[in-house]
Amino acid sequence: MPDTQTERILVIGIGNEFRRDDGVGIAVARQLKKILPETVKVIEQNGEASALMEAWKGAEFVIVIDAVSSGAKPGTIHRLSFKDESRFKIRSQGSTHSFGLTEAIALSRYLNCLPEEGLVFGIEGVDYAQGSGFSPDVLSSVDLVVEQIGDLLQSGRIDPS
């Protein structure tokens, strides 16, 4: 099968598995890798913007899973489309240490390399201390998000084969 087709759908788990809830995107990606057909590329990233842009260049449909800190109840699953411009606020006043997913989406939009469709599954975290393991609410969301993404890819709207 040509590369272009196998990489049409890309799943990216973002996070740091050694900072507790921040690693939830990585955990979801690892589970998805076990259950999704090989035609879906599943990768792990630390969230740095230029690496994200590089990864999704040329992909048609991208699913990103990342921990979110919005003040919502821990474990809440936020679902956002890349197109939803108003929900991704660029932190222009941050340092380069906060050059991440939001910035990658904005920059890709301006540089005309945003995937046709992109979906972010944000899981509200609460504990970002050093160490591994998730807080209980976040842990119970892992399976839910895996299931939702699995369903989405099998629903026919997005054809993984």
């Binding site: 660029i90 222009s92 920059l107 301006y110 540089l111």
Partner: peptide
């Protein structure tokens, strides 16, 4: 500009060269 991202809106080719 407030940031490189805002600059990219008006100068996509230059920012692309930088990246």
């Amino acid at each position: 500009y407030d940031s490189g991202i805002h600059m990219a809106k008006d100068f996509p080719d230059i920012v692309e060269r930088g990246l």
